Simulated assay, not measured.
Amino acid sequence: MAPSSLLTAVTASLCLFSALTIDDIQKQATINANKVLEGTLSDGLTRGANCNKNTVSIRKEYGDLTKDERLEYIRAVKCIRSKPSKLPAGKYPGAKTRYDDFVVVHMNMTPSVHSTANFMHWHRYYIWAYETALKTECDFKGSQPYWNWGKYSDLPTSPIFNGDEWSMGGNGENVKHSGGMMGIPPGEGGGCVTKGPFGNLTVSLGPLMSTMDPALGIKANSQRDGYGNNQRCLRRDVNNHYMASSLKPTNLASHITSNTAIGTFQTTLQNDTPQMSAIHSSGHFSIWGDPGGDVYVSPGEPTFWLHHGQLDRHWWMWQNYLEASLKARTSMYEGGTNWLNPYSAKGKVTDKQWLSVVAPTGQDGLPSNQLFSTIAGPFCYVYQ
């Protein structure tokens, strides 16, 4: 091929990728994931016969669930919050429920699973463990839903946060307050959540690294490590600040199509720039509040799981949408092993990931290379 012809082909290819919408990416990822399930496309991994097109679970966006499906999910979350903790008695005084066990595990693991090679892989494992607990301990009949960041221009009125009986509860009460770290502006909430299925909810662990206005007077934990029993209300400050910037569908599509390696994909997903807030933190800070705006105890916010379900979907789309690079992207692994130590050892695909008491039976300490694909290892799900 002549140089000019090659340049034209490359330019056309780049234009095609830049023109892809997030819906295009989702559709192509689904097609390719189905090819892998059918055996007509290889991702380089070995999967058992128990995961196929007839058995694969389909995760849906919360607003796309029927009202009955939303009620079933809400029931299961309330159920897991009502069961007793399985952690050693007295070791974590604030852990009263089975739900609190998941918060404690995240607090313990935070330095090794944020801004490290383990970020995407461990959180995929963690979300799956939560979904599994809902199913095995609370007879949940559905699949873990996600929150499509780019879907709602007005987040407080979305099906997730509008405060009706099918939502995940409303915004916090309108309390005058200032913004938080990293330039987060104050929204219309800031106070306790009082409406919807998770209105008047009590949280007990943390705060440990709060990003809310100190003038709100959020009660400090009695223990420096945040594990004390610190009973207080769930607060939210659901806002639209990031809906028109970092969480726009065009920005999400651009992030997927402009990163070819897992290292840059993860880094740009997590690290703010002077021009743009990071996608990961933008999702958290669109809910904000206490404990939602605290990196250590954020799973105490019931919508954490919808946000990180979407984070996993974002990675899943990146892994699957390009047939030619699907095999390579599925097994990419890059980064250190401790967020607080820039000189920490590099992660290895054989490094074991830990979930402690929230791991499904016999599934703790799985190596990272068992967590590469949503349809291999212990997983069997795709996104719709």
Rank of each mutant, 00 (worst) to 15 (best):
N174C: 11
N174W: 06
A133H: 02
K176Q: 15
P186W: 04
C138H: 10
K151G: 02
P185K: 14
V175D: 07
F140S: 04
S143C: 14
T136M: 04
G150K: 04
M168D: 05
P159H: 09
G179K: 06
T136H: 08
V113D: 00
N148G: 04
G142A: 09
D154Q: 07
F161Q: 02
K135H: 11
K135I: 09
Q144A: 15
H114R: 01
S143K: 04
V175T: 15
K176E: 15
F119Y: 07
D154K: 10
E188V: 06
P159E: 03
G142V: 11
A129K: 08
M120T: 09
W122I: 10
H177E: 05
C138F: 13
E131D: 14
G163T: 08
W122P: 07
G170L: 08
T157R: 09
E188H: 05
V113F: 00
W149I: 02
D154H: 13
Y126Q: 13
N118S: 07
K151F: 02
F161M: 11
V175K: 15
P186T: 04
W122F: 13
P159T: 09
E131Q: 14
G172S: 09
I127V: 15
M182P: 00
T132V: 02
E173I: 13
G180H: 02
G183I: 06
G170Q: 06
G169V: 12
I127S: 04
M181T: 10
P145E: 12
G163M: 09
G142L: 09
S112V: 01
E131C: 05
P156M: 05
L155A: 07
H114V: 00
N162M: 06
E173T: 15
K135S: 13
I160E: 07
P186A: 15
T136E: 15
D154E: 11
E137M: 09
A117I: 00
G187A: 08
D164H: 12
E188T: 12
T157L: 02
